[in-house]
Simulated scan of single mutants.
Amino acid sequence: MSNLNILVVEDEDAIREMLMMVLEQADFHVLAAVSAEEALKVLAENRVDLLLLDWMLPGISGVELAKRLKREPGYKDLPIILLTARGEEEDKIRGLEIGADDYVTKPFSPKELIARIKAVMRRSGKLGESGQLSIGDLMLDAEQHRLTIAGKSLDVSPTEFRLMQFFMSNPDKVFSRTHLLDQVWGRSVYIEERTVDVHIRRLRKLLAEFGREELIQTVRGFGYRFSLAE
């Protein structure tokens, strides 16, 4: 992992230094900036594999910087994780809608942060997939392309498998249909948002056979969430 560069953009000294320490202990190479303007200079001069970006920055905000980068051909595929003190679900959805790959709400544990970073890097292909995801008695094996509940296989299509892989990598988080399309189908593919609903219904039907249809929850006005909590 030591060859992966993470740029931390945070104007509060104590938080920035804490983030740098946590990331270096996890064997990442860390670059730092205190503003969006400084971040752009660092990006122009260095290879950056992931951007850890504070929502509220002086001058150009983190949200505005993320929007700008996602419009630039050279940076549109750069993974971005937003750091935010905002707890409202609407704000989190807004962060994902502008193109951020994930968000972490302050305060957060170092362990959670590293797990989120690794999940985003796996999805972007920058970190090797460990192969298996396990939540409760639900098991997903990426290498064998197998999804099981209590040891019994579910007959899912390749798209539904990727959808479950994304959900299981990001439990308890709400994703809009647009974000799911971007992450599961890809930004270069034009597909109607309702296609997501079709695959969600199919997955729920399969999960219902095991009494687990509630694992994929509808959040009215926002999208879908995968969670063990009802």
Rank of each mutant, 00 (worst) to 15 (best):
R16S: 11
R16Q: 14
N46H: 14
L7P: 01
A26N: 08
L4K: 15
E17K: 12
L4P: 06
V30W: 11
A33R: 10
L23W: 09
A39C: 10
H29P: 02
L7K: 04
V34A: 14
A26L: 13
S35F: 02
Q25K: 15
M20W: 09
A14S: 11
V9Q: 02
F28Y: 15
L40M: 13
E10L: 08
V30G: 11
N5Y: 12
Q25E: 15
A33S: 14
V30C: 15
A39F: 02
M21N: 12
H29R: 14
E37T: 01
A33K: 07
F28A: 12
E10D: 08
A44P: 03
E24D: 09
N3I: 04
V34D: 09
A33N: 04
L23K: 07
V48R: 02
M20N: 14
V22Q: 09
V34P: 00
R47F: 03
L4F: 07
A33G: 09
H29I: 11
A36K: 00
E38D: 00
A44F: 04
V8P: 03
Q25G: 02
E37A: 07
D27R: 02
D49R: 05
V8W: 08
R16H: 04
A44Y: 07
D27L: 13
Q25S: 15
E10I: 00
M20A: 07
E12Y: 00
V8S: 02
A39V: 02
A33E: 05
M20R: 14
E45G: 05
E37K: 02
D27I: 06
D13H: 10
V48M: 04
D13W: 01
E17I: 03
N46C: 08
D13R: 12
D13M: 09
V22W: 13
A26P: 11
L40V: 07
E17W: 11
D49I: 06
E45C: 09
R16C: 04
D49Q: 05
D27G: 05
L43G: 04
R16I: 05
E17G: 00
E38A: 14
E45W: 08
A32H: 13
L43V: 00
S35Q: 04
E17H: 11
N5F: 10
R16K: 13
D27V: 06
V48C: 05
K41M: 03
K41N: 11
A36W: 03
